[in-house]
Measured scan of single mutants.
Amino acid sequence: KLPPGWEKRMSRSSGRVYYFNHITNASQWERPSGNSSSG
């Protein structure tokens, strides 16, 4: 399961899957890690 705020999306241009955070408006190709504590 993804960390809070993150969701899986697909890029229309490349067709690749990326991850988008609707809370911080951040996007990245790598899967966000939800196990590590923020610090």
Rank of each mutant, 00 (worst) to 15 (best):
S14N: 10
S14H: 10
F20Y: 15
G15A: 04
Q28E: 03
R16N: 07
S14E: 08
P4Q: 07
S38H: 10
G15W: 01
N21F: 04
S33I: 11
N25G: 15
S37F: 09
G34D: 13
Y19M: 00
S36G: 13
A26S: 10
S14I: 06
R12P: 12
P32W: 01
E30G: 05
G34Q: 10
N35K: 10
I23H: 09
Y19I: 00
R9W: 01
V17L: 06
N21L: 01
W29L: 09
N25A: 07
Y18N: 01
N21K: 00
V17E: 14
E30C: 09
K1T: 14
N35D: 14
G5R: 01
P4E: 10
S11Y: 07
R9P: 00
Q28N: 03
S36N: 11
R9L: 07
S33N: 13
E30F: 05
P4A: 09
W29V: 07
G34V: 13
E30S: 04
S14C: 11
S37M: 12
S14M: 07
W29Y: 10
G39Y: 04
Y19D: 01
R31P: 13
W6F: 01
Q28S: 07
E7Y: 05
S38C: 15
P4G: 05
R12F: 05
R9Y: 06
M10P: 03
S11K: 04
K8V: 15
S36H: 10
I23F: 11
S27N: 05
P32Y: 00
W6Y: 02
Y19Q: 00
E7R: 04
P3K: 02
A26P: 00
P3V: 02
Y19F: 07
S33W: 09
P3G: 05
L2F: 03
R9K: 08
S14V: 06
S38F: 09
Y18R: 02
S13I: 14
W6K: 00
K8R: 13
S13W: 06
Y19G: 00
R12Y: 07
R12G: 09
S33L: 13
W6R: 00
S37C: 15
S27Q: 08
E7D: 04
Q28D: 02
N25S: 08
W29I: 08
G15R: 06
P3Y: 02
S36T: 13
K8I: 15
I23K: 06
K1F: 13
W29K: 06
R9V: 06
Q28M: 04
Y18V: 02
E30A: 06
A26Q: 15
G15L: 04
I23S: 06
P4L: 08
S13G: 11
K8S: 07
N25R: 13
V17D: 09
V17F: 10
R16D: 07
H22W: 14
P3I: 02
W29E: 06
S33Y: 09
R12H: 11
Q28G: 02
N25Y: 08
T24Q: 03
E7V: 11
G5V: 02
R31W: 12
N25Q: 14
P32G: 01
G39N: 12
R16A: 08
S13E: 11
P32A: 01
R9G: 02
Y19P: 03
T24D: 05
S14A: 07
F20T: 03
P4M: 08
E30H: 09
Y18G: 01
R12K: 14
S37V: 12
Y19R: 00
G39W: 05
S27C: 15
S27R: 15
S33H: 08
K8M: 15
H22M: 11
P32H: 01
M10K: 13
M10L: 13
P32T: 01
R9Q: 03
S27T: 13
S27E: 05
G39Q: 11
N25D: 04
L2G: 01
S33P: 08
M10Y: 15
F20G: 01
G34L: 13
Y19A: 00
W6V: 01
L2W: 03
N35I: 12
S13M: 08
F20C: 06
S38M: 12
S27V: 15
L2P: 15
K8E: 13
H22A: 11
V17Y: 12
R9H: 07
G39I: 12
E7W: 03
G5D: 05
N21T: 00
F20P: 03
R12E: 10
G34S: 12
R16Y: 05
H22D: 05
G15E: 05
R9S: 02
E7G: 04
R16H: 08
K8T: 09
L2K: 15
S36L: 10
S27W: 15
P32M: 01
S38K: 09
R31T: 08
G15N: 08
P3D: 04
S33E: 12
S38Q: 12
P4F: 10
W6E: 00
H22V: 15
T24Y: 04
S11N: 09
E30K: 05
S13D: 10
Q28I: 03
M10E: 08
L2N: 01
S11G: 06
P4I: 08
F20E: 04
P3T: 02
G34F: 14
L2I: 06
N25L: 12
H22F: 14
K8A: 13
K8F: 05
F20K: 04
G5L: 02
S33T: 15
K1V: 14
W6I: 00
N25K: 15
V17R: 03
I23G: 04
S27K: 13
R12V: 12
K1P: 15
H22I: 15
Y19K: 00
W6T: 00
S33R: 07
S38E: 14
P3A: 04
R31E: 12
H22S: 13
K1L: 13
E30V: 05
E30N: 06
L2E: 15
I23V: 10
G39T: 11
S37W: 09
L2A: 02
S27I: 15
P32L: 02
N25P: 00
P4K: 07
S36E: 14
R12S: 10
S27A: 14
S13H: 12
M10Q: 10
S38T: 13
N35A: 12
S37P: 12
S27M: 15
L2M: 06
E7L: 06
Y18F: 09
Y19E: 00
Y18D: 04
L2H: 02
G15D: 06
K1E: 14
F20W: 09
N21E: 01
R31K: 11
F20R: 02
N21W: 00
R9T: 02
V17M: 07
S14T: 14
E30Q: 08
G34M: 14
M10G: 03
Q28R: 04
P32V: 01
L2V: 06
S37A: 13
M10F: 15
W29S: 07
Y18W: 07
E30T: 06
S11C: 15
H22C: 14
V17A: 07
W29T: 07
S37K: 11
S33A: 11
W29P: 04
S13F: 08
S36W: 06
S13Y: 09
W6S: 00
G5H: 08
H22N: 12
P4V: 08
N35T: 13
V17Q: 05
N35P: 14
R31S: 09
S13P: 09
G15K: 09
K8W: 05
W6A: 00
M10I: 15
N35L: 11
A26K: 15
Y18H: 02
E30M: 05
S11M: 10
E7F: 05
Y18T: 01
H22G: 05
I23Y: 11
M10V: 15
M10S: 08
K1I: 14
Y18E: 04
M10W: 15
R31V: 13
P3L: 03
S37Y: 07
G34N: 12
R16L: 11
M10D: 04
W29N: 06
N35E: 13
W6Q: 00
G34A: 13
S36Q: 10
G15V: 03
G39M: 11
W29D: 05
G39F: 05
S33G: 11
R12T: 11
N25V: 03
F20D: 02
S38N: 11
E7K: 04
S13Q: 10
I23A: 07
N35V: 12
Y19L: 00
W29F: 09
R16M: 08
Q28F: 03
K1N: 14
N25H: 14
